[in-house]
């Protein structure tokens, strides 16, 4: 059952790995190294999704986020030849860093206070016989059918916009 010691240990392990990877990602100067640390964070988040009974979303996270989106980022880094460390300082000045630190701590305090609210009891886990996509399909294709269809238009617009913006003008 997913409530034993091993489960909790792995949950904390993946969560802390995600946070540490994100912290390393923010401090890397090299864009390629930063992207690969972010991929590590996304893999850990996929593991957390799977451990929280969202197996399909975990698979999509690996395929779409860690696979497709980060490959696009790395492709652009390669295309612009940004792999080398920049000669100019990539980090902003000291004042901006202090402002960022204060803003980050304020936001962290606010979010942690919000996260400590009283929460209702967790839902029962899915029985092992059900398919992992069954709980998603019901709301996706009934309640949220119209947003789902609009998403296709959004993706079409994004494709056309990307081609128009990145095309070299003759």
């Amino acid at each position: 059952m997913p409530n034993g010691f091993v489960y909790e240990f792995l949950f904390y392990l993946f969560g802390l790995t995600a946070i540490v990877s994100a912290a390393i990602f923010v401090t890397r100067r090299n864009a390629v190294a930063a992207a690969l640390w972010l991929v590590n964070t996304m893999f850990c988040l996929a593991a957390l999704y799977i451990m929280m009974d969202a197996q399909f979303v975990g698979a999509i996270q690996v395929l779409v986020y860690a696979g497709a989106i980060m490959v696009v980022f790395l492709f652009v880094v390669m295309l612009l030849n940004l792999g080398l460390p920049p000669s100019v300082a990539d980090i902003k000045s000291k004042g901006a860093r202090i402002i960022a630190l204060v803003a980050g701590l304020a936001m962290l305090a606010e979010l942690l206070v919000l996260a400590r609210q009283k929460l209702p009891a967790e839902l029962p886990w899915l029985p092992r016989e059900t398919s992992v996509t069954t709980p998603i399909t019901e709301p996706l294709f009934r309640t949220y059918l119209l947003p789902f269809e609009i998403t296709s238009v959004l993706l079409l617009v994004a494709i056309v916009g990307a081609v128009v913006l990145a095309k070299r003008r003759s």
């Binding site: 946070i19 994100a22 630190l101 803003a103």
Partner: peptide, 11 residues
């Protein structure tokens, strides 16, 4: 918060 701090500090 790590993402916010990154947006505020990187260039």
């Amino acid at each position: 918060v790590i993402g916010v701090v990154g947006v505020l500090t990187r260039r």
